[in-house]
Nucleic acid binder design. Structure first.
Length: 417
RNA sequence: GGGGAGGUUCCCGAGCGGUCAAAGGGAGCAGACUGUAAAUCUGCCGGCGAAGCCUUCGGAGGUUCGAGUCCUCCCCUCCCCA
């Protein structure tokens, strides 16, 4: 139904598909006409980060193919805390926090998915999970689950056999997620759920439950876990997650994150995180040696444009060009470089370099600042600081501003006032 | 309820009563090499500092000239039995 072919093939070619439930022909047929498909998001943070981009982009593709994305916010499941992580950190969240996080999530998704006129909807499972009655739930839903079968599921078996074991809440989590699917089938006609590969068990359970309750065939698709070529989970940097919220991760930093992609990941990421045609993706991915940077620049520009708008993406690209563009560093500074104001009077006498680097936050302690300088990684106006106790005086200021840099990429501006 | 194992610096993990700010690895930071990549190599990696000092090894006490290392109690985690 799109020129490029069947949506399922598109998703598969672009690397979105890990597993699909049988029969696959059923999914194809389902997606031959407009359908509703849902993905759950945890409202545990006020912002989504790039780790959620695979599910988000899959919704973008679905919507472009004429389907209706249903975004499920796990407000109800969030109330008990998702235990599927390795450390069982039970985040206790109030309904208010969840509500506000859900609103934030929706705001971000609106950049990717069109929610107007019911073309996509957002639902919160707190609305149906909270009112559930335990006895009724056991009677109607609990009886449909075979403990034997659940224990055989990979997700549970490994935990079951592990040192930590498996607690009752974790064991029940699957039922709640399955119930979500059943509910969304009934209320929204969802017949496809997608999710991370860790959700496979839950998705299959939901398909089963819906079949047993309603006699309806529904389907599931899981995404592969995206890791970087060096094996790390994608989306984490030294400073933590790369957020989609521009207040948490600036468009410039977001762009930088993508430009710094490992060469080996460039093609795969272009397919997943941009909407360029595959032919172009293949061409860019085929570039060799230093020319692969071109592919990464395109990746960064396109990915940033989707998340923050084309104008912000171009501004970030231009700033990066000034900083890293020519043969020589042109003395540029990132557009959102942190800045602070210090009294000009202090610089009459001069401020010791290590002290200054520490005070503006480029080093966490005075000792770290000393080490930074000793290691040759501290720069004032582009020139390395030679000695720990060098004094920086007002003569270093250009137009009242001193540019400090730690390493290659971290800047801080000091304005003399 | 009974029995056992264990809680060490960001993570994993070693740690004879003194030579432990605490091995090793990972992560991280900086430098070199590069291409704002990867790999590799080098240095750093609790705080303040010139030496030295100060605060850390689940918590609280205690023994000792001296405790991460021994004792007591408490808290927490895991395993086995009931």
């Amino acid at each position: 139904m799109t020129p490029a072919g069947h949506i399922l093939d598109i998703l598969r070619e672009r690397g979105f598909v890990e597993q699909v439930t049988e029969p696959e022909a059923g999914i194809r047929e389902l997606l031959d006409s407009p359908a509703s498909a849902y993905i759950g998001f945890d409202p545990t943070a006020a912002s989504l980060h790039v780790g959620s981009l695979v599910p988000i982009m899959s919704l973008v593709h679905l919507q472009r193919a004429g389907h209706r994305p249903v975004v499920l916010v796990g407000g109800g499941t969030g109330l008990v805390g998702d235990p599927s992580g390795k450390t069982e950190m039970r985040t206790v969240m109030t309904r208010e926090e969840i509500e506000s996080n859900a609103a934030g999530i929706r705001r971000q998704l609106e950049r990717f998915v069109d929610f107007s006129d019911g073309r996509a909807i957002l639902v919160n499972n707190a609305d149906w999970l909270v009112p559930l009655n335990y006895l009724e739930f056991l009677r109607d839903i609990g009886r449909k689950f075979s403990v034997n079968r659940m224990l055989a599921a990979d997700a549970y078996r490994t935990r079951y056999e592990s040192q930590e074991g498996l607690n009752f809440l974790e064991f029940n989590y699957m039922l709640l997620q399955a119930y979500d699917y059943y509910h969304l089938y009934r209320t929204e006609g969802c017949r496809l759920q997608m999710g991370g590969s860790d959700q496979w068990g839950n998705i299959v359970a939901g398909c089963d439950l819906t079949r047993r309750m309603e006699g309806a065939q529904v389907y599931g698709i899981t995404f592969p876990l995206i890791t970087t070529a060096s094996g790390a989970k994608m989306g984490k940097t030294a400073d933590g997650a790369v957020w989609l919220d521009p207040d948490l991760t600036s468009p410039y930093d977001y762009y930088q994150f993508w430009v710094n992609t490992d060469d080996r990941d460039a093609e795969r990421f272009l397919a997943l995180f941009t909407l360029l045609d595959l032919a172009e993706v293949r061409r860019l991915g085929g570039l060799e040696g230093a020319r692969i940077r071109e592919a990464k620049r395109v990746l960064a520009l396109e990915a940033t444009a989707i998340a923050h708008g084309r104008a912000a993406a171009e501004a970030a690209a231009a700033a990066a060009g000034r900083l890293f563009g020519g043969q020589e560093r042109q003395g540029g500074v990132p557009p959102d470089a942190p800045a602070s104001e210090l009294p000009a009077a202090e610089f009459e006498q001069g401020v010791e370099a290590f002290d200054l680097f520490h005070r503006v936050g480029l080093a966490r302690s005075r000792g770290e600042a000393r080490r930074l300088i000793q290691g040759g990684g501290a720069y004032v106006n582009g020139a390395a600081v030679s000695a720990v106790n060098d004094r920086i005086t007002s003569s270093a200021a250009r137009d009242g501003v001193i540019t400090l840099r730690a390493g290659k990429k971290k800047f801080h501006l000091v304005r003399l006032v």
